[in-house]
Design a protein around this nucleic acid. Structure first.
Lengths: 199, 199
DNA sequence: AGTAACATACCAACCAGTCGGTATTCATGC
DNA sequence: GCATGAATACCGACTGGTTGGTATGTTACT
């Protein structure tokens, strides 16, 4: 028909952008339709409800993130330690963008809806955990080489890294500046260097 | 008159609780009135708008936090390093409560409204920064003793600590469990111990 | 012709905020 | 001690605009 996939993608992108700037609850269906340049009738033809769009936007965001981080230069490093530190540096480099562009759709959403929209909450949880799982693989490999006997688990570091990032985003929003977030990522990097000593 | 301060406090407490569970945008004035057991007419007698209530709730939350953390046992330690680590341990102990009870009102709010409600955003920024300033004092004193020549700034550590906490709250919400948050605080503690070596 | 894609007008529920009124308190004068 | 009046506290029905969602199409492709 006309172009189903394209309009759906436009709605998904618009949802991502509007939710990241206004939050999930304040992002109205009309807002998102206007941003996407699509009529409301078309919206409800493609999505059964606002919540379903949210779930779709989260899935699309996960996919986008997966390709961005798997194709970034750091991901090609041979040493898993370099990949871990490269991840942090890469995320720091993203902070040069506008706040709604480097901010995490899932982290923003889950804060608001964790008691009111169970399906959305699960989608956020699974998406964030999948991202952590990717980090955990590199952390596990790096630990085997650089800190085989250390008493920390790679997975807990993966979550720790994400916590620092999510918290840094909150301060970036509060301060309308990514400067604090940059400093926090520097501390995160220093900690990882300490946990994975080079020699 | 009847009991102005008490109703105001009830509304402030209700706002804190409802916003922490549903988010700012989804928390309706009727919700908050119901939770407080106060009529809508009374609400708008005490607060000019929902946003003003939000600002009031943030101020009340700041005050509550200030007394909680200044009267907690760890705050009486002589060694500033013990106060810093004691702060982390104290926050970890709070994770035993229900999620909406240990979660940060300001962090939750600022995520949603940072582009739409400037006054609320500033209130969140100032409140969080004031809390960081308290940490920074102890960090500064501890650094002078244990790491006088280190190249990190006490303030940046204060923000880092808060970022870890805020991020940990997000994962607690996503996972409906504080277990991940606990692990992240352990990592934070380990990092601080490394930055402030005992001998 | 049939069906998927898109559009517009519309709806009931809900929203923040208003309004007219009542109840309670307190200061003043006697 | 008590009437009086002003001010504050409180109430709940109401309002105008907004919300997610629907009903009823029209357009375009197969």
């Amino acid at each position: 028909m006309r172009n189903s996939d394209a309009t759906k993608a436009k709605l998904l992108d618009a949802a991502r952008d509007v939710i990241r700037t206004k939050g999930y609850a304040a992002a109205t269906v009309d807002d998102i339709c206007a941003e996407a340049g699509v009529s409301k009738g078309s919206f409800f033809h493609h999505f059964a409800s606002k919540e379903q769009l949210g779930i779709g936007a989260i899935a699309a965001f996960n996919q986008m993130a997966a390709t961005v981080f798997s194709t970034a230069p750091y991901a090609a490093e041979h040493d898993p330690r370099d990949r871990v530190l490269g991840y942090v540096d890469f995320r720091a480099s993203l902070l040069a963008m506008a706040i709604p562009e480097f901010t995490c759709l899932l982290g923003t959403t889950v804060q608001e809806i964790y008691t009111t929209h169970p399906d959305l909450r699960i989608a956020c949880d699974e998406g964030m955990s999948a991202h952590v799982a990717g980090l955990t693989r590199d952390l596990d490999a790096a630990k085997k080489i650089y800190a085989p006997d250390a008493d920390w688990s790679p997975e807990s570091i993966g979550y720790f890294m994400q916590s620092v990032l999510q918290g840094a985003f909150i301060f970036a929003k509060a301060k309308q500046s990514a400067a604090v977030a940059e400093d926090s990522l520097s501390h995160l990097r220093r900690y990882l260097e300490m946990l994975l000593p080079k020699t």
